[in-house]
């Protein structure tokens, strides 16, 4: 669920950046939420090192920080990928097989909901409704809603990313 993805170098950096945020806060337990939001704002997610630093700072057990982070949807345990995949599981998308679409993404990317691929290319998550139910089942790819995303379209979307990648590397080499 919470795989370690950061290297030692990154860990040091995470600790430093987290500590910088403390300057603006007192050691009150009530400051936990704003601190978490600021740290995520800076790092893009909440790594274990940051959680431990926050727990130390507020003098509370590490599990309490973890508990709050896992309770709220707004907090991420994994770093954001270069491309974000948001599978809609709202009522209409649910009826149209949103779970099948989600399973297809999970299988293709080999990650679970809320996780990021080891190369940090994609991160996968679900959303409740994005407001374009006519296009169900919807997947929001990099902020752009894609309609009628059935497993074959998942393959198609991933293929498009691959092509883009190839083009980029060709341009860089040539």
């Amino acid at each position: 669920m919470n795989k370690k993805v950061s290297t030692t170098e990154e860990q040091v950096k995470i600790r430093q950046e987290t500590k910088q945020i403390f300057k603006r806060f007192g050691k009150k337990r009530g400051n936990l939420m704003p601190i978490l939001q600021k740290v995520q704002g800076k790092l893009g997610y909440l790594p274990q090192e940051a959680m431990l630093e926050i727990a130390d700072f507020l003098e509370i057990p590490g599990i309490d920080v973890y508990s709050v982070i896992t309770f709220y949807n707004q907090f991420r345990l994994n770093p954001p990928g270069r491309h974000s995949i948001r599978v809609c599981l709202g009522t209409a998308c649910h009826m149209k097989g949103g779970y099948i679409t989600l399973d297809a993404w999970k299988r293709r990317l080999d990650i679970d909901r809320g996780e990021t691929t080891p190369d940090r290319e994609f991160d996968l998550d679900s959303v409740a409704c994005v407001g374009c139910c006519v296009m169900a089942p919807v997947t929001v790819v990099d902020g752009k809603p894609q309609g009628k995303v059935e497993p074959t379209k998942v393959d198609g979307l991933l293929l498009a990313f691959e092509h883009e990648q190839e083009k980029k590397s060709k341009n860089e080499n040539g």
């Binding site: 919470n2 274990q48 959680m51 431990l52 057990p61 590490g62 599990i63 973890y66 508990s67 309770f71």
Partner: peptide
């Protein structure tokens, strides 16, 4: 401590 929410809620350790 507790982690997650709703049906996923569990008693667990840090991370």
């Amino acid at each position: 401590g507790f982690a997650n929410r709703g049906f996923q809620r569990v008693v667990t350790t840090f991370a």
